[in-house]
Design a protein around this nucleic acid. Sequence first.
DNA 1: CGGAACTTTGAGTCACTTCAATCGGTGTGG
DNA 2: CCACACCGATTGAAGTGACTCAAAGTTCCG
Lengths: 246, 246
Amino acid sequence: VSTTPLLRRLEAIGASTQAERDLLANLPGTTKHYDAHYDIVSDGDRPSVVCLILEGMACRYKISADGKRQIVSFHIPGDIPDIQSLFIDVMDHSLATLVPSKVLAIPHARMCGIIDEHPRIAHVLWRETLIDAAVFREWIVVRSRPAYVRVAHLLCEHFARMDAVGLTEGDTCALPITQAQIGDALGLSDVHVNRTLQELRGENLIRLQDGKLTIPDREGLKAAGEFDPRYLHLKRGMGDTRAARG
Amino acid sequence: VSTTPLLRRLEAIGASTQAERDLLANLPGTTKHYDAHYDIVSDGDRPSVVCLILEGMACRYKISADGKRQIVSFHIPGDIPDIQSLFIDVMDHSLATLVPSKVLAIPHARMCGIIDEHPRIAHVLWRETLIDAAVFREWIVVRSRPAYVRVAHLLCEHFARMDAVGLTEGDTCALPITQAQIGDALGLSDVHVNRTLQELRGENLIRLQDGKLTIPDREGLKAAGEFDPRYLHLKRGMGDTRAARG
DNA sequence: CGGAACTTTGAGTCACTTCAATCGGTGTGG
DNA sequence: CCACACCGATTGAAGTGACTCAAAGTTCCG
């Protein structure tokens, strides 16, 4: 695994030059390994680097007034979850690993230099932050739907994003999170997430075990989750290129 | 009213040059007047301009699978709600006026030219899109709290944003929306919004009539809404400069 | 083999919903 | 100048999706 996922995003806006590809393939910075459940950046911090996720999985979260942890996004390889720290000095949320993860810490100064000198790279990164916002909007909408839809939608979204960076194998991808974490992300109790997953499993729409998500019936799950991937602004919709298992 | 609110945002990141101020004060484009409840941009459109709101109020919304209109953000003068169309071709949501409004439609080409030639203006605009995302995150969190908190929070946020662009008078600002629209934004039924507003009114935390919001007890409302304005990344917190009425 | 973390099951409760009127203000046409 | 229509705010009552509490079953690990 390398910075390949970022390259795919560059190409999402059109042809890239060799210089641009070289740059993204050899980003300056320090590779770091974090344990699971480690706060890479915390609410209130003033980071001096941004983190490109190379391997593993992370989430952004806030603690609400009643003390509950509210997950606002999940992040997979190729994401730069804290790019906002380039332009906004104080963090208004935290970024934590979900599993042991490898990240590339890129100093702000280096990143700013790249942005200044390569307008098209800046364009790609800006676009990524806008898609980030589009995902938040979708979550706002989906979170007003019933639990069954929310859970199905989350699984569709995760698979689609993993697929977009080449991290799926057939109808399976990694999803190393607990039911309680799904609840934290969807505003549901762990008990209710459990019941909902059982329902989806009973309908043969998903399997979720050992940190692996399998979607035997992709169209069925999309219908269950009222999932329309347009908001992700990928080149192709989820699974459009591959047939689901019969 | 002019492009003044945008100028304030430029200054949020530091000293500005005369050229920058002149540019923002004389943005190229066409001034347009829209009726209330008019779709400026619709889901699926491919806009060729971006809209700077000069007067009035707008909202972004999506229609969820059950046919309900879900408002994902409100916009006030100084906002450019559809700046994402510069970098993402197809709209994944709609933008509509709430009241008769005046907007400046700036062609994409002109806007791109400005961004290319004025890195610091680009910086401000990028920063605004990141704050936009921060507001979405906050909504995700707040929408998992009880109705009472949600409503109070929304009112605090609106007042704080209006205050930041100089559109408040004492403890009052414009908020020309119906209770049903508040419900669409908060994921509550209009009936429940009504009861919640009565509760807040009964506690003398707010008054809301004739499209005007008055907050007699700002600290009380902030407490009720569990409102911490850090996520808005303004220069000053809501009402920090003015004492609440005793 | 004891313990920690996660999943699963059952039962009672509640915040918010839906349905159904009613009330008040405002604009319009006769 | 009034009757009607329309829209938004308000009130009442009944229903329910998801929560909390509580406990037991599983899996993994030292």
